[in-house]
Design a binder for these strands. Structure first.
Lengths: 210, 210
DNA sequence: GTCTATAGAGGGATAGAC
DNA sequence: GTCTATCCCTCTATAGAC
């Protein structure tokens, strides 16, 4: 990959993060990348295409970056902790806001939707694998739809990233309150056999409300 | 309020919802409202100001619309159900996407941030009241930071609204899986006194991880 | 209050020199 | 591959007729 291509991809991500989808023009991206504006079209054909490739590239890179940490997760508590770490790290640096901006843009520009979905799906799939593994021995296993929960968690983090941008303290407090809930989940997983059996029975008796 | 003002406020909301913050120009809003473009500036001074007022107006109206339903909630399950109803109704019609787009825009345009936050806060405060009431008799009460949880839930719904725009089926599945979790919460609330005492003890023993 | 017209900036995209 | 120059469009905002 040529240097210019790489600079443009990086410039696109920084522009998307700092100035939002509304501010991600060929000119502003080129300025951020330190290259000439016409090169956007020489290398990528259109701004949308550049955003698409930048988004895919970043998601691959970022998911990869946390790969070992995903593998190391052995409980729901640890998954929540990893989520917090990723939120804090990516919030300032990276990918969550970029994805959120792509989703925001995709509402109006259908061309952005497939790539935004593809990028988000990289995160979702990683979370699915972890959830599946972590729930294996949990009494919650049969009551959690793993693909659905992975999607809910991913969407929630996107919203939290946006919220963080306008109320950092509020987002911190939100995160802290969710972190506290993991104690509850952990307790359920750690209940003795008798209590677990009771819970299981009660859960089975209650029909899904969906 | 003059007819034109009302039309512009409505047009701004529809444009924000359908074409996103990137497509919410004075021209497109005026077209959606069926009025002349120059009237945006006559009545509101700037596009940002129009978006700000539209956002505040819509949040007031929408929160009001669900006011009775918020009051009628008596359990966490019912709160989840109401959340699903609001998501489904607002997703097509309304306010959640508008708010998400305002948040997306506020990242780049600081002038939008205060009004986006104010609008979102109307939802958050309503949820806080309900959470406070519903948790009163729950063993979870002392482990839930109500303001934090209300913010987390609100942010999560914003993310879900955006996600819905690019993957409706995925969002449905996410929602369904969360709906199923409410059974767990309900079961905890309905445990007998002995089991509740056990849970309380275990929860107290586990220190917050935040 | 509403319209037309337009100034002036910024945007996507291309042509053509180097 | 990179640059300058440019076309043409859309945008915000205003001036001025009605």
């Amino acid at each position: 990959m040529t240097d210019t291509r790489a600079r443009l991809l990086d410039g696109a991500l920084r522009t998307l993060r700092d100035r939002g989808i509304a501010g991600a023009s060929a000119r502003s991206i080129a300025t951020a990348a330190g290259v000439n504006q016409a090169l956007v079209f020489y290398h990528f054909g259109s701004v949308d295409q550049l955003l698409t490739e930048a988004c895919a590239h970043a998601a691959r890179e970022r998911v990869q970056l946390y790969s070992d940490q995903f593998d190391a997760v052995t409980s729901l508590s640890e998954l929540v902790e990893l989520g917090v770490r990723i939120h804090k790290h990516e919030g300032a640096e990276g990918n969550i806001l970029v994805l959120a901006q792509m989703l925001a843009g995709a509402q109006s520009e259908p061309k952005l939707a497939p790539s935004a979905l593809a990028a988000l799906t990289m995160w979702i799939e990683r979370i699915e694998v972890v959830l599946e593994r972590v729930l294996l021995r949990s009494p919650l296993r049969e009551f959690v739809d793993v693909p659905g929960m992975a999607r809910a968690l991913s969407a929630a983090f996107l919203g939290l990233g946006l919220y963080d941008g306008i109320d950092h303290d509020g987002a911190d407090r939100a995160l802290a309150s969710v972190t506290r809930l993991d104690v509850l989940i952990e307790v359920i997983d750690d209940l003795g056999p008798a209590a677990q059996a009771l819970l299981r029975t009660r859960l089975r008796r209650a029909p899904p409300t969906a």
